[in-house]
Design a protein around this nucleic acid. Structure first.
Lengths: 229, 229
DNA sequence: AATCGTATAATTGTATACAATCATACGAAG
DNA sequence: CTTCGTATGATTGTATACAATTATACGATT
C-alpha cells in the first residue's frame, strides 16, 4: 500500500502527465476554473510547458473522476461540484467512514493508534487558539490514518477521493473555535472506540461525526462556503 | 443524465480510445488477462488495429479505475480483484445500496416504479424455471433502476462502478433456483418499501439484500466462483 | 433584413517519430 | 564460477504532424 502510494507520488512528480493532472485537478477544486469552463488542450499545455499528449492523458483521468466532461470532437468542460453533490458526498461519506472505523478496529497498528493520539493532543492545542490552518491539516491527517488503518485499498481509495472532492468546502467547516473543539472531541471518541476494538461504537461515532460536520457546514451557510468568495 | 450516458455511449462507440477502454476492461473483468499480466501498448494496439495514442489514454483511465497499475517507464500491470476486494465491495455496496434505496423513495418516478414491478413479475417466471441468464440480466436492471432513481449522479456512478467490478462473480450467485427466488422476493420487498415511501425500511431491506447475496456467494464457494474455472 | 450555404479557422482525434528509461545478454575481470 | 559493467534491444514518455470534426464568419439568395 505504501509502495503504491510511493509509486503514485513518483509518477505525479516526474511525469508530465501526473503534473498536469494534479495541477488541473487542483485548479478545479480550488475554484480557479469554474463550472462549464472550457479547457483547451493547447492552452493548458502551453501554460505548463508541455505538449498536448500528456494533457490529453490527464484529461481522460479527470473525466473519469467526474471533474470534467469531455464531449467528443468538441472539448473538455469543467463539471464542478454542486451543492447537491456536496450533500450527497457527506451522506455517502458518513456511511463509509462508519464502515472504515469499524474495519480499523481489526487492522489498526500500534503506530497508527499512537499517531491518532498525538494528533488529538496537538489538535486540542490548536483548536482552542483558533489555528484553523493547522486544524484543517490535523483533521485531514486523522481521517487519512483511519483510511489507511481500515486495510481495504478499495474503501481507502473511495474515501480519499471524496475527501479531496470536498476539501475546499471542508476547510471552512472548521472555521470556528466551537466546531474545532467539538470536532476534536468527536475524534477522541472515535479513537477510543477503535483502540478498545469496539467496532459497533466506532461505526456509530464516525457516522455521526460526518453528519455533525455537514450540519455545522449547513448552519454556517453552505452557500457562502461553497461559492468562490 | 440520459444525455451524459448517451454521449458516453457515443464516445465509446466512435472513438478508438473508448473502444480500447471497454475492450481491455472487459478482458480484465472477464478474466482473459490475469493478475500481474503485463499489458503492452503496442500489442494491445495491434490487436485492435489502432496506434499507441488511444491505447495509452485508455490505460490512464483503467489505472484510475484501479484495474491496472502503471509503473512509470516500465509498464502496465493487471491489478485484478482479490477475494478480499470482493468482500469489501459487497460490504461497501450493502451500505450504499441502502442509501440508494432510501433516496429513491423521494425521487423515483412512476415509470421507474412500473418498470420495477414488471421486472419482478418477469423475474418470478424465470426464477422458477432456472433461466439464470435472464435472471442475471433482470437483477442487474433492477439495481440499475434504483441507481437512476436515487437521483444522485455521484452515488449512481459509485454503485455502478462496483456493480461492474463484481459482475462476473455476481452472475454465479444467482445460479440456483432457491437463491433466484429468494433474491426476487427481496427485490419485491425493496420495491414495496420504495413505493410506499418508507425510506427506513427500504434502506434496511436493500442493505440486507446485498448481505444475503454475499452470504449466498460464500456458501456456494467464493473460491470457485472467483477463479477462472 | 433574414436565412441558408460555403469557406475558413480552430480544435480535437489519431498516427508516427524521436527521446528517455529500463531490461537483458554477453563478455571481461576477479 | 561469480560478478560487475557495458552494449544492445525493447518499451514507455513526449512532441509533432496530419486527419477529421466542429465552430464561425461572410456573402449570396430570397
Amino acid at each position: 500500500m505504501q509502495e503504491y502510494d510511493l509509486k503514485q507520488e513518483v509518477t505525479d512528480k516526474y511525469s508530465l502527465r501526473g503534473r498536469v493532472f494534479n495541477k488541473v485537478r487542483e485548479d478545479i477544486l480550488s475554484g480557479k476554473y469554474r463550472e462549464n469552463d472550457e479547457l483547451k488542450e493547447i492552452a493548458i499545455g502551453e501554460e505548463l510547458g508541455v505538449s498536448r499528449t500528456p494533457v490529453r492523458e490527464a484529461f481522460r483521468q479527470l473525466e473519469l473522476e467526474g471533474l470534467i466532461q469531455i464531449i467528443p470532437n468538441k472539448g473538455a468542460y469543467v463539471t464542478g461540484i454542486t451543492m447537491e453533490d456536496v450533500k450527497d458526498i457527506y451522506m455517502i461519506r458518513s456511511k463509509l467512514e462508519g464502515l472504515c472505523a469499524a474495519w480499523a478496529c481489526e487492522h489498526i497498528t500500534k503506530e497508527q493508534l499512537e499517531e491518532m493520539e498525538e494528533n488529538i493532543y496537538l489538535a486540542k492545542f490548536h483548536a482552542e487558539r483558533g489555528h484553523f490552518e493547522q486544524m484543517s491539516e490535523l483533521d485531514s491527517r486523522f481521517h487519512e490514518i483511519m483510511y489507511e488503518a481500515c486495510h481495504s485499498k478499495l474503501l481507502e481509495h473511495n474515501l480519499r477521493d471524496y475527501h479531496q472532492y470536498v476539501m475546499r468546502v471542508r476547510k471552512k467547516t472548521l472555521s470556528t473555535v466551537e466546531r474545532s473543539i467539538a470536532c476534536n472531541a468527536e475524534h477522541q471518541g472515535i479513537y477510543e472506540a477503535i483502540r478498545d476494538k469496539n467496532a459497533k461504537l466506532a461505526d456509530e461515532l464516525a457516522t455521526l461525526h460526518v453528519h455533525k460536520a455537514y450540519e455545522n457546514m449547513v448552519k454556517n451557510g453552505l452557500r457562502e462556503a461553497y461559492s468562490n468568495e
